[in-house]
Design a protein around this nucleic acid. Structure first.
Lengths: 208, 208
DNA sequence: AAAAGTTAATTAAACGTTTGTTTAAATCAA
DNA sequence: TTGATTTAAACAAACGTTTAATTAACTTTT
């Protein structure tokens, strides 16, 4: 892909995640990416097509990571859960802000095509996660749980944290402008919490 | 409050929750509320002030509900957790769509005043929840957990469900347009999942 | 009680910006 | 010379907000 095209994509990702799809203008994107306004239409056709391209650009990596994790025979189910948490927390908080767009802003988008695209991506990824948990159940590590909603809890917890940055900064006495301090503190605490949560939730010894 | 003023507030709540703050125009609101466009500026001053008024209009009820739940001596800690789940699930899914705005869209808003207002509301509510959990810990029902992030998981799970309606409809084979079927199915399943999740997570017998 | 006066509510129209997108000319590379 | 980039300018449409005129609801005065 062209350098400029990629530059536009990454800038758009940044701005969409920060200010929302509607809250970001194509002029904003063009200016921050250092390209002419018309280049966006030239490359992508429209603002919505730009978002669509962004989603596709990011979707492949997640799926292949989950697929590999699923296939890995050297890890036991608990290890896989830990890896899963690490992966999603880091992706959400550090980079790939597109997750924010996918999990949060999709319902606000008008285009049915994009909604469909996101739904398909999610279903594809959930399939991999479902296999991981079902494998743990078969091996008698995990108890019977609502797999889909359990993943909803994981994703929900993380996006909650990324979305309510203001709130959690007040809570943890972190300077709102110190992005780095926030990340370090939140990532650690979030991983710890989620692993503790899932350990209790999934453990077969807690079977009702 | 005037009938029309309330009508505008409720319409705005509906539309903000559905299409986002930026995605909703004042003309939209005026039309759906059946009032003249200028009435919004006349009553509230601006679109942002309208949102501010909406938040204040909704914030009191939640707090007093939590406060009462906290004080209630007839319920044991587990009962209170169940009530908490019921309360939040129903509020999120059924009415009070403003929760969606608060928990999800606050980071996208430009106005620092509104961000501050939301943070204060959240802190105030969390205080009540913290007391409930700490009480359960003191009475040796609950183990030591990350209280703030545990609440993040509860809120996150619920908002995940309300936001990714498209996705979960595909998942549960529900007609996307059948709002009532979605609510019924989701509310029940969500309550069950969250209670199961919290029961394992909080139980002192699962202390590491 | 009727009329006059006063404030509040409501309206249609217009304001100046900003929006996403397109155009047609200019520049670049091969 | 040809085809792909890049540009500044312009487009119509939608945006939040304001204006000035009109109607409705009350108060006060006669």
């Amino acid at each position: 892909m062209t350098d400029k095209k990629t530059e536009i994509l990454l800038t758009a990702e940044e701005l969409f995640a920060e200010k929302g799809f509607d809250g970001t203008s194509v002029r904003d994107i063009a200016q921050h990416a250092g390209v002419n306004l018309a280049m966006i239409s030239y490359y992508f056709g429209s603002k919505e097509k730009l978002l669509e391209a962004l989603l596709e650009y990011r979707s492949d990596y997640t799926f292949s990571t989950l697929e590999e994790l699923n296939k890995d025979q050297s890890l036991n189910p608990w290890d896989k859960i830990d890896r899963l948490v690490d992966f999603y927390v880091e992706k959400f908080i550090n980079n790939n802000k597109v997750y924010n767009i996918i999990s949060v802003q999709s319902s606000k988008l008008s285009s049915p095509e994009i909604k469909e695209l996101i739904t398909k991506m999610k279903l594809r990824n959930l399939d991999q996660i479902r296999k991981i948990i079902q494998d743990g159940q078969k091996k008698k590590f995990f108890r019977k749980v609502d797999i889909e909603f359990t993943m909803g809890s994981v994703m929900g917890t993380i996006s909650q944290l990324t979305l309510s940055k203001n709130f959690y900064c007040s809570l943890m006495n972190i300077d709102k402008t110190d992005e780095e301090a926030y990340r370090k503190k939140v990532i650690l605490r979030l991983k710890t919490h989620l692993k503790q949560l899932l350990r209790a939730h999934l453990d077969i010894r807690n079977e009702a």
